[in-house]
Design a protein around this nucleic acid. Sequence first.
DNA 1: TAACCTACCAAACACTTGTTAGGGAACGGT
DNA 2: ACCGTTCCCTAACAAGTGTTTGGTAGGTTA
Lengths: 216, 216
Amino acid sequence: MNRPDTGSDNGHVPTAKKKTTVSATPERRRELLNTAAEVFAAQGYNATTVRRIADEAGMLAGSLYYHFDSKESMVDEILSTFLTELWDGYDAVLAADLGPRETIEALVTESFREIDRHRAAVAIYQKESKHLAAQPRFGYLTESQQKFEKAWLGTLERGVADGAFRADLDIRLTYRFVRDTVWVAASWYRPDGHHSPEEIARQYLSMVLDGIARRD
Amino acid sequence: MNRPDTGSDNGHVPTAKKKTTVSATPERRRELLNTAAEVFAAQGYNATTVRRIADEAGMLAGSLYYHFDSKESMVDEILSTFLTELWDGYDAVLAADLGPRETIEALVTESFREIDRHRAAVAIYQKESKHLAAQPRFGYLTESQQKFEKAWLGTLERGVADGAFRADLDIRLTYRFVRDTVWVAASWYRPDGHHSPEEIARQYLSMVLDGIARRD
DNA sequence: TAACCTACCAAACACTTGTTAGGGAACGGT
DNA sequence: ACCGTTCCCTAACAAGTGTTTGGTAGGTTA
C-alpha cells in the first residue's frame, strides 16, 4: 500500500534504504503486530501505550523499536496489510462481472470473511481511520474509501437501473446503510461463535434484500 | 429551538453528587459542554486534550477546572445527559403499548430525533462507551445498554410471535442489525442536510422492514 | 466603603507519553 | 577464536498530559 517496496516481497536486493529495522524473519514481526492490533482494537489507538503492547508481548517498551520505528508505523502496517488483502478479494469479485444483486451478495460475503480474518484490523479501521486519514501518511485510507464508495454505489445504481433494487430509495442513504450494517459487525463478531462468516452473510443479505417484516 | 432550562438540576442518573463545582448559572456550563462534546466527537476522547477544549472555548486549560473537576466528569455529564433524554423518549414510546411493528417504527424515529439533537454525544457514546463502561463510574452505560437490548429484543420477539416479523431469522442477529443500522448514522449525519430526522427514519424503516430488493 | 462572589489567568506540579542510546547475551558461520 | 547478527534490556530524555494553587479584575450586595 504505502510501503515503499511493495513489489515482490523479501527482495534481498541491498537497497540504499536506511536501516528500517526489518527482521530477517518476519515471523516475530507479525506476531507482534497481531498483539498490537488486538490491544489497539480493544482500547483504542490513542489510549494504547507502547508499554502496554510490549507488556502483552512479554517484553519492554523500548524493545519494540527494534522491530518498528514508531507506534504510528505499527498501526500503519496493520491497516495497510488489511486493506491490501481486502482489495484482493473485492477486485476478484468485481472482475467477475456478475449482476448487481449477485455482486452485492458476493461483496457482503467477502466482507464478512475479511472481518473473520482481520477482526482487530477492521475494528481499528472503523474507530481510527477518520482522524488518521487527516495525516498524509494515511492518505491511502481516503483512497480506499473512495474506491469503496465507487464500487458499492455503482453496483447499487446498476441494480436500480436493472430493476433488481427498488427505485424509490435515496441511493446514497442506501449505500451508507448497507456499508455500515456490514462493517459494524466487527464490533461484536467473535470468531469462536457458532456462526460462520458465510452464515452471517446469508442472514444479513436476507435482511437487507428482503427486509425483516413478514411477507404475505 | 433551545430548550427551556430544566429548572431543577435535571438530576442526571449516574454520578454521585459530591461537592462538584456547580455554577450558579448553568448556562456557561452547558456552552462549555457543547464545545467539549464537539471536540470529543471529532478527535476522540483520549486524543482530546483539555488545552484543546479550553482553546476552543477561548480560555486557558486551568480555567476549565472552575466549572468541572476533571476531564472525565465532562464526558460523564455529556453522556449521562444524553442518555437521560434518550430514555425519556424511549420510555414514552414503550409506555404507549403499541404493536411490535409500530413500536419498532416509533423507536427508530425517536432514535433519529435523538441523533439530530445530540449528534456529538451519540458519536462519543459509540466510540468510547465500550472502554468507558469498564470504569465503575460509567456503570450506567452498561445498565442502559442492557435496558436497550431488553426493549428491542422484546419487541422483536413479540413481533415474531405475532406474525409481524419473519420467524426464520436469528433474532439476536436481527437485534444487532437493527440497532447498529440506526446508531451508526450519527457518524455521517449532518443536521444541515436536506433530510429531516423523520425522513431518514422513514427510509431506514423502509429498508429494514421491506428490504432493498424490488418486489414483484 | 467594605466584603463577597463569579469567572477567569498565570505558573507551576507530578506524571505519563513515545522514543532513543548503549550494551549485552545467545548463536551461527568461518 | 573471532566476527557479525539477532533480539532484547537498562536507563534515560524531552515533550505533553491532567490537575492544582494562588491571584485578580469586575460586578453585586450590605
